[in-house]
Write a protein that binds this DNA or RNA. Structure first.
Lengths: 348, 348
DNA sequence: AGCACCGTTTAAACCGGTTTAGATAGACCT
DNA sequence: AGGTCTATCTAAACCGGTTTAAACGGTGCT
């Protein structure tokens, strides 16, 4: 009943060579005769030998794993469409390299720093993905201090020792605004994400500058928090303005879908009375009524690129270049249309 | 510049004892004089020593990590409200024990089996969570063969060597049906999940038996796939029946919210013309218009219980009992109301 | 004094790989 | 024949813990 998995010593014995020779052969190191290498490979194959990455971890001081710390309130996280696809993209790179993904979900605040410290002190991972990048993100200094390699998802505003993988949200946001302007909207409002986040302000400033290029100013900019509840609140405030907007651009789909519900609950018809646009193209965006005009990125490709880039730095490459991904695309659905004054007459 | 982390040998030297003694002291083993233990602990503390779990992994043959394989189409997964909260619950248990969570996202099919095999062969984890349990789930035999401990989320139908952590979906489903019956509905339809899943059939049979107890039969049962697109399709089929239902109970919120959109797109008013109920209480359920009547479970608690139970098995306990969690609760919102004949008159 | 016995501690093997220094052997050269 | 070189391979140390067998020193007993 030798259920035990074979070790490198078993392979060595079977091939009639030393442990060291086996290690050399399996790692493709030069200095072994071709015939010997073949013999060793055959023996390893016969035995079904697989290296123990516990042992490898100890001797080469690597974890063969990458880490992702998701800093979220569980409720907020709960329907975020980004991470699952991002993670799938990461995995597609890791699995072929025999690496694992270690996930941590921490609530915002001190727990976040503790999460990264734990990952570093326990030497659980060789590098981490820095997502939901914030302005003057304290995690950059923290990771530098911890000596933990990283890639940032999007470009940090300070100087950063880590390569950035960038998916520019601005063209997509600009496309939304241009789409609304073309439809004839002049009274456009914005529901922004928390300004601490780089991607939130990127979307907001893109919106403002595109409006400005069209000679317009936003009716109002409501700062919210990416949650459905926040989207509802912001929408209600916008709808009770003395001069309410004819179109609202939300910084993500969750807020937009919630805003859609709020508008309908207030008796408005979308898009006849109010146009609504989101950002993310989450699964439901297509299926709510009316279908949500939004912006589609490719989180899977984002994950792939991030994993590849992080592996370059983990493998010791210096001066790893930033990676720029194709920007998000506008997806026009039924939630946007001509403004009331131009399109269908406003209801009695 | 001794940036190097201290090893157990450093602690031993500082305390003036042997490596073995340090190991004993730090693991609370008997056989050391009290004074010696104190001395060692003080030395470890001074040095800021933390055990290397790479070394521990190798010598005790444990990974100090648990695994979760999520078998999903990335698109399907993308807005599943269950996993993020479940994972947060798992983490709350793992972090205090210094364990990590290794996540794998695989697409359905052969890749799934490969995912578990990789986790086992690479000895990446000490045990895994078996989620989305299926009837005659092949993974139970697979994990038994691989010798990988597990817990099943919900109870498998065959015999299983693994403890089950159970969150019974039936009372919640029954509550939904009773709620609709009380409102006066007699023409109730169901949009079910894929019958391969244990939780899908549990919800379906609970619905059928509750209806039967009220002397009713379902108008129709449409089998779908838990996705928004599937929900739309099923809803369209139900609405074009010669005798359409006055209420539809969906097996999850995604299908329900999509169905809500489909009903509205078909010109129906919810709940006046049609009542709609979901299952999960996802974030958006509260904020779509009208708010979705649904069933709320506690995935965070589910994750906690599953992690605790899995750790018992991993720690070598035998005959770990199944854990039954409090069942999901009905949440009544605006998407359900009296049927057309009894309530508001049907629109001209 | 000799012995058994106890609590305490240490030395060394071990987990399964990687890596370095050195051994071995044959070829080639003078 | 003796010496240098190169190609090939091995022995042993090492990573940082855990664990086992044995050593140690002191007590109490006969």
């Amino acid at each position: 009943m030798s259920k035990q998995r074979p070790t490198i010593a078993d392979v060595a014995q079977r091939a009639g060579v030393s442990k060291g020779a086996v290690s050399f052969a399996l790692n493709g190191r030069p200095g072994l005769a071709r015939a010997t290498v073949d013999k060793i490979l055959a023996a390893a194959d016969d035995l079904g030998w697989r290296p123990s990455n516990r042992a490898r971890s100890l001797s080469v001081s690597k974890a063969f794993a990458l880490g992702l710390v998701i800093t979220r309130d569980p409720a907020v996280l709960s329907s975020d469409p980004f991470f699952p696809a991002f993670i799938a993209g990461v995995e597609s790179v890791l699995s072929s390299r025999g690496q694992a993904l270690v996930l941590q979900v921490v609530t915002a605040g001190e727990e976040e720093e503790a999460g990264y410290r734990r990952l570093a002190q326990d030497a659980r991972v060789d590098g981490v993905f820095l997502s939901d990048l914030r302005h003057d993100d304290p995690r950059i200094a923290l990771l530098t201090e911890l000596g933990l390699p990283a890639v940032t998802l999007n470009r940090p505003d300070g100087t950063s020792p880590f390569p950035a993988v960038i998916l520019d949200d601005r063209p997509g946001t600009a496309a939304v605004v241009e789409h609304l302007v073309e439809l004839g909207h002049t009274r456009i409002a914005h529901v922004a994400g928390p300004p601490a986040f780089v991607h939130a302000t990127a979307r907001s400033t893109a919106l403002l500058s595109t409006l400005a290029a069209a000679g317009l100013e936003p009716v109002a900019v409501e700062t919210s928090d990416f949650t459905a509840a926040g989207g509802i609140e912001a929408t209600r405030r916008l709808l009770t303005l003395s001069q309410p907007p004819t179109a609202i651009v939300y910084a993500n789909d969750r807020m937009a879908i919630a805003g859609l519900g709020a508008a309908q609950a207030a008796g408005l018809t979308v898009p006849d009375d109010l146009s609504i646009a989101g950002f993310d193209d989450s699964e439901l965006a297509e299926y709510v009524h009316p279908g949500l005009t939004t912006v589609r990125a490719d989180p899977f490709a984002f994950g792939e690129a991030a994993a590849q880039t992080l592996n370059l730095v983990v493998d010791g490459a210096t001066d790893v270049p930033d990676v720029e991904l194709p920007p998000a695309q506008l997806v026009v659905r039924r939630s946007t249309g001509a403004p009331p004054s131009l399109g269908s007459p406003s209801p009695a």
